[in-house]
């Protein structure tokens, strides 16, 4: 076995992944023989209308739900259930209200058995990364939505995952915080060199952040397609190439 270099770490491949649910006695094929390959250190955005199965896909990738068939491999290792190389960021920050910001960030490391002092030292570094060092001793409820989400991101990064799974992480933020958080996410991603898979319903967000966009359509519609975004970073939302891609995606969803 060769050791993987940093950029090769976190390569995700999804093969023939299927998942269905029973709803009122009817079978709903949410994911049907899905295939994706994502290079390590890249960003994949999953977009699509509500109920198209994008969150289900992310939960399967996270190991929170099991697929009916097919498999997910990370760095050529098949993954089943939850594991440490993947960290999940949800739409809500899901901070523990009884822990200080610092203790929240070290929580993931501590439950994984890192000694408290070491965990705290790493947590401090991560809080610095998300620019919240001066809030170490604050309670979660004293933070704004965007700050709380940054604490959640710091907690996820503290465990040094190979893959960061984000389920509409900026969905609950106002338009202004959203844009600044998209810039933050890009910066953090560049500094951490981590593979990111992100579910979003915001096309602009997908184009701004991702190297590849997985376009999912309504259930039982056409099969998902992968779209490459080859724009240099930092991306300019008003650049003609950016606008052209957005236009193309909007047309795919019938939004002219």
């Amino acid at each position: 076995m060769t050791t993987l270099t940093k950029t090769e770490r976190g390569t995700v491949s999804v093969r023939n992944l299927s998942k269905s649910f029973q709803l009122n006695g009817e079978r709903l094929d949410v994911l049907k023989k899905l295939n994706i390959t994502l290079e390590g250190g890249k960003v994949l955005a999953i977009v699509g209308p509500s109920g198209c199965g994008k969150t289900t896909l992310l939960r399967v990738l996270a190991g929170l739900e099991n697929p009916d068939s097919g498999d997910v491999t990370i760095d050529s290792k098949e993954v089943q259930g939850l594991s440490r190389e993947r960290a999940v960021i949800f739409q809500e920050p899901r901070l523990l209200p009884w822990l200080s910001v610092l203790d929240n960030v070290s929580f993931g490391l501590e439950v994984q058995g890192t000694p408290k002092e070491t965990a705290r030292a790493s947590a401090k570094k991560m809080l610095k990364l998300v620019r919240l060092s001066q809030f170490e001793q604050a309670w979660p409820k004293q933070l704004s939505g965007g700050m709380a989400q940054r604490v959640g991101i710091a907690r996820a990064l503290a465990v040094q995952p190979e893959i960061l799974l984000l389920d509409e992480p900026l969905g609950a933020l106002d338009a202004m915080s959203k844009i600044s958080m998209q810039e933050e996410l890009t910066r953090i991603w560049q500094e951490q060199n981590v593979t990111m898979i992100l579910v979003t319903h915001d096309l602009e967000e997908a184009i701004y952040l991702a190297d590849q966009v997985l376009v999912m359509s309504k259930l039982n519609g056409t099969s998902p397609r992968l779209l490459d975004i080859d724009l240099p970073r930092p991306r300019d939302r008003s650049h003609q190439d950016f606008v052209a891609i957005r236009q193309k995606l909007m047309t795919e969803f019938g939004l002219h």
Binding site: L82, R84, V88, R94, V111, Q112
Partner: peptide, 9 residues
């Protein structure tokens, strides 16, 4: 919150 803790193993 329980699910969050579970994702960290």
């Amino acid at each position: 919150l329980l699910e969050m803790a579970r994702t960290y193993g």
